[in-house]
């Protein structure tokens, strides 16, 4: 488990008023945007618990949308994001729910379009966030590392093929998280990397057979 750093504590520079409910929301949106990596027809934001109860006053709705639009946490447009041309160009709605099995600050992003995808995440304090689920797979994405995300058919050899290609690119693996829906069915894998992989390496892993979704998710800047 990664320990927090001094930098996490004395930053980020951000638009107020709440690190978990505003900056954390922006970061969740940014990371979900990078995971989805396409233009959706519509996004439904489901806010849970404290996010639902106090989210409006904290600009959580604005933050989540700003992140989806690619704004950074200190972007001055966050305050008026609903009025921006970027926001007016997409369809979105917000739902407010209670579910005490979920984290106090939990959100689901439901992307509809050419690709349907549901991404779940938590804002865990001081602007730190974690994506916990993509569709029905558990993941562990905190935006602190460049990460390769795969959804693939659960057959022997996929993990070793992928890790060998990364090794050939001379990039070190910081952590690896796998999950699957059932033996021989769909599986997911998140590989956090020290450093950057090359375009060639990304092409090679993307072209492997048995892959359904491959994403290279750059770490969040702040």
């Amino acid at each position: 488990m990664r320990q927090s750093s001094i930098i996490d504590i004395i930053s980020p520079t951000m638009a107020g008023p709440s690190s978990s409910h505003t900056a954390g929301a922006v970061r969740l949106g940014l990371l979900a945007r990078n995971v989805y990596n396409a233009k959706p027809d519509k996004i439904v934001f489901k806010l849970y618990n404290s996010y639902a109860l106090t989210g409006k006053g904290h600009g959580t709705d604005k933050g989540l949308l700003a992140g989806i639009l690619g704004f950074s946490v200190d972007d001055k447009r966050i305050k008026h994001v609903f009025e921006t041309p970027e926001a007016k160009a997409i369809n979105y709605e917000f739902e407010y729910l209670e579910d005490f099995n979920r984290h106090p600050n939990a959100v689901d992003f439901i992307f509809e379009g050419g690709l349907n995808m549901t991404i779940s995440g938590d804002s865990i304090g001081a602007g730190e966030i974690i994506l916990t689920k993509i569709n029905r797979f558990s993941v562990n994405l905190d935006g602190k590392y460049n990460t390769l995300l795969f959804v693939y058919e659960d057959v022997p050899g996929v993990i070793s093929n992928v890790t060998r290609i990364i090794q050939e690119d001379n990039v070190n693996i910081a952590s690896l998280h796998c999950d699957r829906s059932g033996k021989g069915k769909d599986a997911s894998m998140c590989i956090c990397l020290d450093g950057e992989i090359s375009k060639q390496c990304l092409h090679t892993v993307s072209d492997l057979k048995n892959m359904y979704i491959v994403r290279y998710i750059k770490k969040l800047e702040s």
Binding site: M14, G16, D74, A126
Partner: peptide, 18 residues
């Protein structure tokens, strides 16, 4: 007060305590 205006502040450690 800058924080509640949605102005730019440093979360240290959080925005509410900035």
């Amino acid at each position: 007060e800058q924080n509640l205006r949605m102005g730019t502040i440093v979360a240290c450690p959080t925005a509410g305590s900035c």
